[in-house]
Computed example of a mutant assay.
Amino acid sequence: MRSVIILGSTGSIGTQALDVIRANPRRFEVVGLAVGSNRAALEAQAAEFGVEHTAVGIDEAVQLVRDVDADVVLNGITGSVGLGPTIATLERGTTLALANKESLIVGGDLVTRIAKPGQIVPVDSEHSAIAQALRSGTEDEVRRLVLTASGGPFRGRKREELVDVTPAQALAHPTWDMGLVVTTNSATLVNKGLEVIEAHLLFDVPYDRIDVTVHPQSIVHSMVEFVDGSTIAQASPPDMRLPISLGLDWPNRVAAVGRPLDWTVASSWTFEPLDHAAFPAIALAKQVGRAGGDYPAVFNAANEEAVAAFHAGRIGFLDIVDTVQAVVEAHEPPERELTLASLAESERAARAAANARIAKA
């Protein structure tokens, strides 16, 4: 039986993880739960699963990870605030099932230096798919990684057609039910840009060998192309419980966590090239990833502020990525060691710069 701590237990990832555990009580035991602020929901979860150790807020979550023995910590927190718990988990030597991509992206080299080989297991569906496909060959046999993107609610629109889109339209994702920030990031494709950086950090593949293709059916979750011309794809109906279950017990598969594809029904899978003019976030993310240092932290922090401003009606949809690009291009990296404190300072500066630009919009 594997013991599990779930950070962000009342969010989308956390509740689906509890679904997996609820269906497999002899395989998993919840030993710790943490939430941002929803104490009532936390208490209900703790009562159902018999959990003694709980936490509210990031500081308590970090202490929970440090104090409680577990086989795996599932980090389902949203945003860069998840960096502290990610580092605490890695420092303790516990397996990290990572759904909080921002902590890896913002932490960058700081996180990868701490992590032992195989200690981070990706939970994002795209990176889980790549991890599964990579088992088909050796590191030297990999030619490129191909991440799939649904295209979000504005797939097929030209840049000029995105000027007047509303927050409600941006939140109408065709496939996934996610929170406000992640869903908006999927509409701008910032989320896919973050995933490109994450793929580089997780699998140590250069950015010029990481591609994105638009796949609106969201059945093929990502692919690995090998040097012999073979491409291995992981395909399944969209259901996060599958990659979550692999994160909890990698590399073992958990039976019946999701439904399989129905091969008796006719269906079509399509793949389309990405329109970089309409969705420049991926090219910007690659630029940021290559720059390294605190640039990814600046990129992510500026985006979070721009997304909030868009939903408050202060800027338009296209202004989100334009704001991020302006902040990134104006950024001057400090001459100091990359630490948790220095990254926090870089984030504060980026948020201030983004808000200053937004105020002038």
Rank of each mutant, 00 (worst) to 15 (best):
L248C: 07
R314H: 10
R348V: 05
I210E: 01
F317C: 11
R357Y: 08
R159Q: 06
E335Y: 02
W250I: 10
G316V: 07
A309Y: 02
A199I: 07
I358F: 09
L33V: 04
S267V: 01
L110W: 07
I21R: 11
I219W: 04
A326V: 03
I77M: 15
T339Q: 00
E195K: 09
H215C: 12
L98W: 12
Q45N: 15
G247I: 06
D275W: 13
E198M: 11
A47W: 00
E332P: 00
A281R: 08
V307E: 01
N100T: 10
A99V: 02
V142C: 14
I232V: 15
R357F: 09
T78M: 14
A285F: 13
G76K: 12
V328C: 14
I6M: 08
A17C: 14
D208M: 03
F310M: 12
R290W: 02
V321M: 15
L96G: 03
V307M: 04
E139C: 01
A344E: 15
P296S: 12
L98H: 09
I58K: 11
I87E: 13
N100E: 09
I58V: 15
L340D: 01
L242G: 02
I6P: 13
N100L: 11
P85R: 04
H276T: 13
V227N: 14
M240D: 04
G57A: 14
T89P: 00
V196K: 02
V298F: 04
V73S: 00
F310D: 10
V328D: 03
I282H: 04
D208I: 01
R351V: 05
L98P: 11
M223Y: 08
V106Q: 11
G247M: 04
Y295P: 00
P153T: 03
A172I: 01
Q234P: 02
R351W: 03
S103T: 03
M240N: 10
F317S: 12
A129E: 01
